[in-house]
């Protein structure tokens, strides 16, 4: 089955990005496909490579990048939400791309399920 995910909170402050990641990992382990992860609202903050958590903490941004590379997952950051919050191409971590809100609707159309993770 194809899953589209939406993440609408930033990393660390709220658990939603972690839950979305665990969900994605479990879905892939069960042989499902993650068609796209769309980052909206403060969720765009999951995409910056400037993120530097303490050594003993999980690296939420790099974790998404790694999962995307291993499973060819499309990580899309909403352009309108990103620009508002200072997220631009030059700060994007590997695997993320900036695109329009249409990509969220497109995910809803193409995926079998769209699951929203947020606050």
């Amino acid at each position: 089955m194809k899953f589209g995910l939406m993440v609408s909170t930033g990393p660390y402050t709220h658990q939603a990005s972690d839950t979305a990641f665990q969900f994605a990992k479990a879905a892939l382990a069960r042989g499902h496909e993650i068609q796209r992860v769309f980052f909206y609202h403060d969720g765009v903050n999951n995409a910056t490579k400037l993120t530097e958590p303490p050594q003993d903490d999980r690296h939420i941004v790099n974790r998404w990048s790694k999962l995307a590379a291993e499973h060819k997952i499309d990580l899309v950051v909403c352009i309108a939400a990103a620009l508002r919050r200072g997220i631009k191409d030059e700060v994007l971590a590997n695997g993320f791309r900036i695109s329009g809100l249409g990509q969220l609707v497109d995910s809803g159309i193409k995926a079998d399920r769209l699951v929203v993770f947020g606050d």
Partner: peptide, 11 residues
């Protein structure tokens, strides 16, 4: 349920 069970519920 665990995360796998979460996935199954959505599916």
């Amino acid at each position: 349920v665990d995360y796998g069970g979460f996935v199954d519920l959505v599916a």
